[in-house]
Design a protein around this nucleic acid. Structure first.
Lengths: 225, 225
DNA sequence: ACGATACTCCACAGATTATTGGAGGATCGC
DNA sequence: GCGATCCTCCAATAATCTGTGGAGTATCGT
């Protein structure tokens, strides 16, 4: 192979890798990936959850599809997007981890977003034991859609924004273990703060759904009619 | 925290993650990362190896530095760039793997670049045993600079472009195990083809330096005065 | 067949990024 | 201190990406 031809082929290969990098090069697309890591969802649902114009969301999803990061299925008039594989979630998680470790701006933005993160935490291997004793109640505070698409077995669903009104659905003298989407999700932090203010003992699960899935732990789902 | 403020903080956090994604969004930057995964190098050296204008290379390196992916040290008039950590190499490797698995263009570009990849391969755990028997010679075909910055213990260095002239430095009746930068590097493929044409028995090592390092296997270095 | 729904495609304006030549800094040998 | 070397910063152009409204497409219920 001539040297020039080989250099061209090399550039092409690296540009192909870069196409995947480009898919990760927009905050909005990363938000969409984060949502998709919770389970499949319609364009409209994703647009609303990410605070995007429908057209814009669709365009970003096309970009992700082009990179092969997401796949789709049609159900009637709706099109459901989902992650194309666990490895995509893994890549997303690693990107966040590396970003946090090497970019000073990340911890700053993280703390500004999550607020006080100095709460009690439980690791998933400790959770199993406490569930068996019946010592705790597991609470999923994500939007119902995401709970339906997949949740920790035995968890009950009360979205954060309904939690203040529905707090009495929780047993009064049992610890509540709260989880949400993942490491950088506010929902569980907000929920723990709210529960604590109401005199409940609440602990944040160290893992969100993203980490739970990546650890290959069991997931219950309700939907897919 | 007011809902709007929180939404803003969220956007900011994801934009911060995206800054790392952006660092991965250019083929040239990925080539630089690939080179840096071999060991530290000057701007000039990187520019030449990647076929870039010095200014352009410098600009890309600034981008990578901004994302915290690379670090620098000064030695006299020269500035050496290096990867900021193993996790960066890991992210880079995972990006390529995910890209290959989900983007049809990658295998096509890969085959066009690497040529016939249907050669014998050896895994690193098999290598150890054969080294102990003295059954094989390990050959590093990367540029000398990269060999000096770190190589497999016991490997000898003959850059591919000198291999045809220096082939007699290799023992005639011993198998040669060839390695280079990593999974998507041509050098070892080219070398195996060349050695085979000259009637030598050559086997490609399954891992390049990138994978070797990520597997935490021992590395010898010569340089760093 | 018709309207309604959910989504994609197109076209365009505004914002970012890439590349390059040339000017400007830092450091060395002398 | 002076020139040489190696690199970064600046300015400007070209190319690419983002967000948006409006038009177009697929599917469903009737």
């Amino acid at each position: 192979m001539a040297a020039t031809t080989q250099a061209l082929a090399k550039t092409e290969l690296y540009e192909a890798f870069a196409a995947s990098g480009k898919a990760l090069a927009s905050g909005k697309r990363l938000e969409l990936l984060d949502l998709l890591a919770q389970g499949e969802r319609t364009v409209d649902g994703l647009a609303k959850a990410a605070g995007l114009n429908l057209t814009t969301a669709s365009a970003h999803l096309q970009t992700l599809k082009q990179a092969g990061f997401v796949a789709t299925r049609r159900d009637g008039v709706r099109i459901f997007y989902r992650l194309a594989g666990d490895d995509v979630a893994q890549l997303f998680a690693l990107l966040r981890k590396v970003a946090e470790r090497h970019q000073a701006a990340v911890p700053v933005a993280r703390d500004a977003y999550l607020g006080d993160t100095d709460t009690a935490e439980l690791r998933h291997n400790e959770l199993q034991a406490r569930i068996e004793i019946g010592d705790v109640v597991v609470l999923d505070v994500r939007p119902v859609e995401e709970y339906l698409a997949g949740h920790i077995p035995g968890a009950i669903s009360i979205p954060v924004d309904e939690l203040a009104d529905r707090i009495n659905e929780l047993p009064e003298h049992t610890d509540t273990v709260v989880y949400c989407r993942g490491e950088y999700c506010v929902l569980a932090y907000d929920a723990v703060r709210l529960l604590t203010e109401h005199g409940r003992r609440a602990i944040r699960l160290n893992d969100g759904m993203l980490e739970w899935r990546l650890a290959d732990l069991p997931v219950d789902a309700c939907d897919r009619p």
